[in-house]
Design a protein around this nucleic acid. Structure first.
Lengths: 218, 218
DNA sequence: TTAAATAATTAGATAAGACTAACAAATATA
DNA sequence: TATATTTGTTAGTCTTATCTAATTATTTAA
């Protein structure tokens, strides 16, 4: 059984290693807001538990076991977010903080019941895939809106950040998952875009926003 | 902000001091399964935080502030139990363990939403009153079934123990809250009773069980 | 290719919350 | 009332998870 703290390290490693599978101590330290020596010592501990491959001065990698256990925590997080939105009436911008706590509840029955009541959902309210009961996650490769070209027609399928402020911003612009977007133009010097969707015929969005929106080409 | 550990001590003090308002270190130690020296030092800490009136070798008493904060934890526990039973379809014997964990979630909105979805319930699935938003609880004085006389007709209104095994036992006997019970006879030597209710015309229940059933006289 | 900057580790300290062993106070019993 | 038992406290240790300061590797830049 992993402690709440260990679960948080595993989850962070899982999320950070999505790209290349490797994470530096420094990255992990910054992401968790925990000083590097503390991270180093936890990596040794998780290495003893066969959850992380750790060698001095080498990048960190989750083992298969570590990936599985991290996946199970993330499964609980995402199921919870879905439950809060679908069954309790929260907005997608409100659920991250609550799920961050509920993901550590130890009760298979509780999450089993959520899953059942939700009808076994495959994605959470931010478009992230929900790992299966073994902790495995189907990795879907969406494009960033920022990587699209002027003229492209795409569908908003997920967001990469779940902070309250960012999602509230999307709410004010009426940008939600499923929204069909057309890229009217891209500013060459800062990567910001002018897009149209629904009733919004001409909205300007910054590069930062574009990088956080994941889309599927139509 | 109290730690999870502190919350558990407060809650235990609250529950144990229902009778006379005072609890001994020994009692608290046994109830929490934590050795006495640990309890003593935590009492000093809670005393510094003005949550407990602590003096060496004197019985423990929650302060007004302590009672309020304990009440708020118990409110979260009982709202959760109600939610699990009413909105998620758990049995009353399954919810204690889960609520024991969820009661420590820090999110007023989460419990506010539960309360709203449940229609502001006054009692949990075991008949215990749910403290209000200030942590205050309406103390209702039911009788123990074991204190009733032969011939009494009563209604089962609450149970004093929420363990899985005990509640499963009540399930098998189809004893639920609201059940009208008539006491047919009482064994003088062990206090066990023969009772009738619903389709059960003659059930024998031990003294231990009678002490855990709270009833209202009709 | 050496010096500077960055990243990582080691060593040692601290706080929370648990423990045991030993002692002291209060209560119960002979 | 004197003694035995039970209850409570003190002192000191352990573990987990954090920190800072100092040191060592590695990487980057001159």
């Amino acid at each position: 059984m992993n402690s709440l703290t260990e679960e948080n390290y595993l989850k962070a490693l899982f999320n950070l290693s999505q790209e290349n599978g490797e994470v530096s101590v420094n990255e992990l330290s910054k992401h968790l807001q925990i000083k590097m020596p503390t991270v180093t010592s936890m990596m040794k501990k998780l290495s003893d538990k066969k959850l992380v491959n750790y060698e001095s001065y080498k990048p960190l990698k989750l083992t298969e076991k570590g990936r599985r256990e991290a996946g199970l925590v993330i499964r609980k997080h995402r199921l919870t977010e879905m439950f809060l939105v679908d069954k309790m009436g929260f907005g997608w911008e409100q659920v991250h903080e609550i799920a961050e706590q509920i993901e550590h509840i130890h009760s298979p029955e509780f999450f089993e019941k959520m899953d059942e009541l939700l009808g076994y959902p495959k994605f959470d309210p931010h478009g992230s895939p929900i790992p299966d009961k073994t902790g495995k996650v189907e990795w879907i490769h969406y494009s960033k809106l920022s990587d699209c070209k002027a003229g492209d027609a795409v569908k908003l399928s997920a967001v990469t950040h779940s902070s309250d402020e960012f999602l509230k911003f999307l709410n004010t612009r009426e940008l939600k998952l499923g929204t069909k977007i057309r890229i009217k133009s891209i500013e060459a010097f800062d990567g910001s875009m002018t897009i149209s969707y629904g009733k919004h015929l001409s909205e300007h969005v910054s590069c930062l926003v574009c990088e956080r929106l994941l889309v599927e080409k139509e």
